[in-house]
Computed example of a mutant assay.
Amino acid sequence: MRAILIVNPNATSTTAAGRDLVAHALASRVSLTVLHTTHRGHARELATEARRAGIDLVIVHGGDGTVNEVVNGLLGVPAPTSMQSVTVGPVPLLAVVPGGSANVFARSLGIAKDPVEATNQLIDLLESGSSRRIGLGYCDRTWFLFNAGLGWDADVCDAIDRGRKGGEAVTPSRYVRTAITTFFRRKRRDPHLTVETDAGEAVTGVHFAFVTNSDPWTFLEARPVRTNPGTSFDSGLGIFAMRSTKVFTTLRVVVQMLSGTSGPHSRALLRDDDVKWIRVRSTEPTGLQVDGDYLGERTEVEFASAPDALAVVAPLPGDTP
């Protein structure tokens, strides 16, 4: 099996020694070429080249942003009517060895968080031939793996990105502090979003909207954060949109996101766990994030579900690492 290992050497939790160990272990099982990213968008370029070269397997050692770039490089831009990817030749299998701060995609697939453990797990999966097809989300000419959103979360991602460029470490505690600060800064703004889905009528007066393709939405260290527990890689998209920024109402919903699997609920919350498409309109330019990557401001975004879009090396649903 011809494989490439795309490594982001600047990923949060990778080290030179750890990267060498991962590469050495994988090279004992597959015909491996190791490639390091050097700039933003490089992982996407490498993945596109791998597909065109007929590589069988693309392994990513990095965070969610690097994995997102690779997936977009593998699949290209889909046809607007069919949501099928526009590619030349077969799409390689995708595998992930976590190397970022949150690693939401890998952990949602059942991949171990520790890179060494994940590498051993990947070797076992390859030897057993275990793989599965998963659905993805799509918006703004970009595939997303696990979540996207307009408003609050996008502003948090923007602040985190600006801090990272300034040399600040990306940690769960920093995400929490930034989320709280951003919430209170936005709190007094009038609601300006309208959310429409294939499952119901348009809902106005929305302050912020999260769109998910899997569960959990993210992690705080080992704790999963669940906005849409009924959403999975095998279902449609989840929508989570708040029509209130009252502190007590928001805090109660946040506690539900952190504490249970039944799903957050509130009269101020629009939530559905399995929809084909979601359209969000804004009366003013509003930030958009995709898999934690801030894309800028938009006034209208349509999110679409693309079933069975990608083949990944991962445990079958229900299996444990």
Rank of each mutant, 00 (worst) to 15 (best):
N228E: 13
W143E: 02
T218H: 03
R2M: 11
P92R: 01
W152C: 00
V116M: 11
L288S: 04
R2H: 14
L93G: 04
P307K: 10
G230L: 14
G260E: 03
P9K: 14
V86G: 09
S244E: 03
A159C: 03
N72Q: 08
S101M: 10
G292E: 01
R174Y: 09
V253H: 03
R267Q: 07
V170C: 06
H265K: 06
R243T: 15
G63N: 12
G200L: 14
G163C: 05
I4P: 05
A11E: 10
T218S: 13
D56A: 11
T320I: 08
E49Q: 14
G236A: 07
G54T: 13
P216V: 09
F208R: 02
V313Q: 01
I160G: 01
S259G: 13
T212E: 12
A169G: 03
S108R: 01
H265N: 10
S82R: 12
E297D: 10
N68M: 01
M1Q: 09
T142G: 05
R162Y: 05
L145T: 09
I4W: 09
G41D: 08
M257V: 09
D291W: 06
V88T: 15
V116Q: 13
T250G: 07
V34E: 14
N72L: 05
V67S: 03
T194R: 11
E45V: 04
L237K: 14
